[in-house]
Nucleic acid binder design. Structure first.
Lengths: 227, 227
DNA sequence: CGCAGTCTGTCGCCCAGGCGACAATTCGGT
DNA sequence: ACCGAATTGTCGCCTGGGCGACAGACTGCG
């Protein structure tokens, strides 16, 4: 699958990919394992070889804020800037996953030596910046309904499997997680999802969301919405 | 002033800075002029030599969402990924400013040839990513009061001038702009600022905010807040 | 130095949606 | 296959803060 422009490993030339992975140490994770947590001092750049990771923070009052999901091929961990304070997000495996770890020094040296990889890395960061900006704008501009609808739509477009007219999201999400991604509370998510289901826009089976009427979903979004 | 790690030009080695600027075309802007607008097809990387820029989007219902302010020395415009759709934010000069423009090709080539500059560029993007992440988390975790207080605090810490115990923000902000940065509405900003003033935490003169009691401000923030 | 246009302060109404409380389901681990 | 734990569905109450409407204060341009 031609995974979006965030698929760093996938876009890398074969030789370069091999060279980079040669510098890395592998690590296996089971669902629920953490790659690292807020405050961890351990540095290094990571590549997700397989599986799915959840990036989030926890607010002082215990609320989780999910920042994004990481899919196979993506780089992460390079944005942890002022090493002094340690990692600034939690990264947890949503399912059986495998990551490759490279030291910061090695990763930087690799990019120094492979300018095209460095460009790719910048592009990846740029994409993430753009996504984050969108999320932020939506957060202040849209109401709860539109935020949830947009999230589903977005996940469908970027991480969905198409099957004659319908799109099934690859990620398995609880209402609580949707709430944590949209800043809406859990009960409200349940209500909105219920409504969307009543409108025959989507259906849910075993915690998997399937978009049945992408057109109507899209239209719902663009009635009172932003790009 | 040792401006934060976002000061790309400032951190660059003297020779490199000169080399980069040699590739650039200058452009002067008066308050209110746009560097580019959403949808503009014109590409290129920009360096802010002097002045202050405001980055924002406008939602379909006309609400402005301010994403950040750009200070002298910063790079921008490199994050506009899928050139197809053109620029994704508006950039307007808050005051008399000067920018240097480099074509994408030239900028990328420059970074290819100067790995240390490329590292710096990544760091800059990482910082921005971190800032954006914080904003986002605050947006979902904090109430209006905390959001406004944090914004003032943040601007004070990063772009404030210290003068025996007080900190004056360098940026001149209207209540509407604070509203646009925090996702709170204008009247509420006025109310909160009024309260902060009544509490003797800050004072405002000619639209310039001065923090008189940073300690108390900080304490207000951390009573019901997030990092 | 005056005036038009912006910005600030203040009220009051009103509703989206947060929150607590359960009951009913559904998972997933052993 | 079973059982405890986690998730989903549903109510109703209650409040933070959005929004409209002005009046008064700046402010900066002509």
């Amino acid at each position: 699958m031609a995974n979006a422009p965030t698929d760093f490993l996938g876009q890398l030339a074969t030789v370069e990919r091999a060279a980079l992975l040669r510098l890395a140490k592998r690590r296996l994770l089971r669902r629920g394992d953490f790659v690292f947590r807020v405050g961890d001092k351990k540095r290094g750049a990571y590549l997700l070889l397989r599986g799915r990771l959840k990036f989030f923070r926890v607010t002082p009052d215990g609320r989780e804020v999910i920042l994004w999901f990481c899919f196979a091929g993506e780089v992460f961990g390079i944005s942890e800037v002022p090493a002094a304070k340690g990692r600034r997000v939690n990264v947890e495996a949503c399912e059986e996953s495998e990551v490759a770890v490279v030291t910061d020094a090695a990763f930087n040296r690799f990019l120094d030596d492979h300018p095209s990889a460095a460009r790719l890395c910048r592009r990846t960061m740029a994409v993430r910046l753009g996504t984050l900006t969108n999320t932020l704008v939506n957060l202040v501009a849209d109401d709860a309904y539109a935020r949830v609808a947009k999230l589903v739509h977005h996940l469908g477009m970027h991480h969905g499997t198409r099957l004659n007219g319908t799109i099934t999201l690859e990620v398995v999400l609880t209402h609580q997680e949707i709430a944590d991604m949209t800043g809406v509370n859990r009960q409200t998510v349940t209500r909105i999802l219920g409504d969307l289901r009543a409108k025959r826009v989507l259906s849910i089976q075993r915690r998997r969301i399937r978009i049945d009427d992408a057109a109507k979903l899209n239209q719902l979004i663009h009635s009172t919405a932003s790009p």
